[in-house]
């Protein structure tokens, strides 16, 4: 046999209309609600956000600084005992322009999303891993992302007013360029 590479393969394709009119079609609406615990280290990190501070944890053995913080160093398998406060400034590692929502609907105003490599004084990382956050950028144009000007740009967090902070990642409204 020619390895099956040439033969007609099994399977029945359905057009959407055909599928919805099939006898025996079963539709089911899942109802699953969850409550996720942020855990020890992240809860403290979120408390910090509420106070307008970005906290990380340092591994006493290898010196890595973790943001978001973890209770353990995944390389040394040691508990990370020291809390460190970061200045919050950093540089854009990568950034993109999103035209679609979570459910793939078209958005009127595109969002700029980025990975921010945070300044972590005293942390001599190997260049591959770093302390960083995933967040949105503001005060920046889509053209800056497309031209590449945004990458490597120095940024700082724009905090929500203290009374609006809830202790979640959105207490930082976004990261914005540091005026030079």
């Amino acid at each position: 046999m020619s390895g099956g590479a040439e033969r007609r393969l099994p399977g029945h394709y359905l057009k959407a209309r055909e599928m919805y009119s099939l006898p025996g079609l079963v539709e089911y609406r899942p109802v699953a609600r969850y409550l996720f615990s942020a855990g020890q280290a992240q809860s403290r990190f979120l408390d910090g956000l509420k106070e307008g501070r970005i906290l990380g944890k340092r591994c006493p053995r290898c010196g890595r600084v973790y943001v978001p913080p973890r209770s353990y160093c995944e390389y040394c398998m040691a508990p990370t005992s020291d809390w460190v406060e970061l200045p919050g400034t950093g540089e854009v590692h990568t950034a993109v322009v999103s035209y679609i929502s979570t459910f793939r609907e078209r958005m009127e105003k595109p969002e700029i999303v980025a990975v921010i490599k945070l300044d972590a004084p005293g942390y001599t990382e190997g260049g591959y891993e770093f302390a960083g956050l995933f967040h949105k950028l503001c005060n920046i144009e889509p053209e800056d992302v497309m031209s590449g000007r945004a990458i490597g740009m120095r940024v700082k967090p724009r905090w929500r007013p203290p009374e609006e902070r809830k202790g979640d990642v959105n207490d930082i409204e976004c990261f914005e360029p540091i005026e030079s």
Binding site: S98, T102, L133, F134, V169, N170
Partner: peptide, 13 residues
């Protein structure tokens, strides 16, 4: 669920 989903991400991001 704590640090990423509140930002309303899309997989393609």
């Amino acid at each position: 669920p704590v640090l990423e989903r509140p930002l309303g991400p899309n997989l393609i991001w």
